[in-house]
């Protein structure tokens, strides 16, 4: 039965790497926590991600990348989201992201960055607490 508002999350893999184990484990954990997860698969361009976020009216965008292209792709995604009027959306990221990149990523509006070994429960809690 519908029970009012559901948290909707887009899980996307920008870049070309095919390592989707983390993205899928997170997607499943969020589903099991009662959220609706739009999973768009591998090799998403920033344009595709921003447009899917818009059409699906998601509350959260989760980005997973292991190829090392995050400093090129994440700023583009954040700008496109802003251009489309979705600056209020909560964005988090995971994958292989060196610590020294974290301040710059937070600066551009990515709220949380999860490295390997993050318990999925942490992500669930963070989203529940921070989605208005």
């Amino acid at each position: 039965m519908p029970d009012g508002k559901k948290i909707r999350v887009l899980i996307a893999k920008p870049g070309l790497d095919g390592h989707d184990r983390g993205a899928k484990v997170v997607a499943r954990a969020l589903r099991d926590a009662g959220m609706e997860v739009i999973y768009t698969g591998l090799r998403q361009t920033p344009e595709m991600i921003a447009e899917a976020a818009l059409q699906e009216d998601v509350d959260v965008v989760g980005l997973s990348i292991l190829s090392g292209a995050h400093m090129t792709l994440f700023p583009r995604i954040m700008k496109l989201l802003k251009d489309k009027g979705m600056e209020g959306i909560l964005v988090f990221a995971g994958g292989i992201i060196p610590d020294e990149d974290v301040p710059a990523l937070k600066e551009m509006g990515i709220r949380a960055i999860y490295g390997p070994g993050t318990p999925t429960g942490d992500i669930v809690d963070f989203l529940r607490q921070n989605v208005q």
Partner: peptide
């Protein structure tokens, strides 16, 4: 909760 995965097959249409 749900996993909604149909967009995968329609990727190019997103643009």
């Amino acid at each position: 909760g749900a996993i909604l995965g149909d967009r995968i097959r329609m990727q190019e249409l997103t643009g």
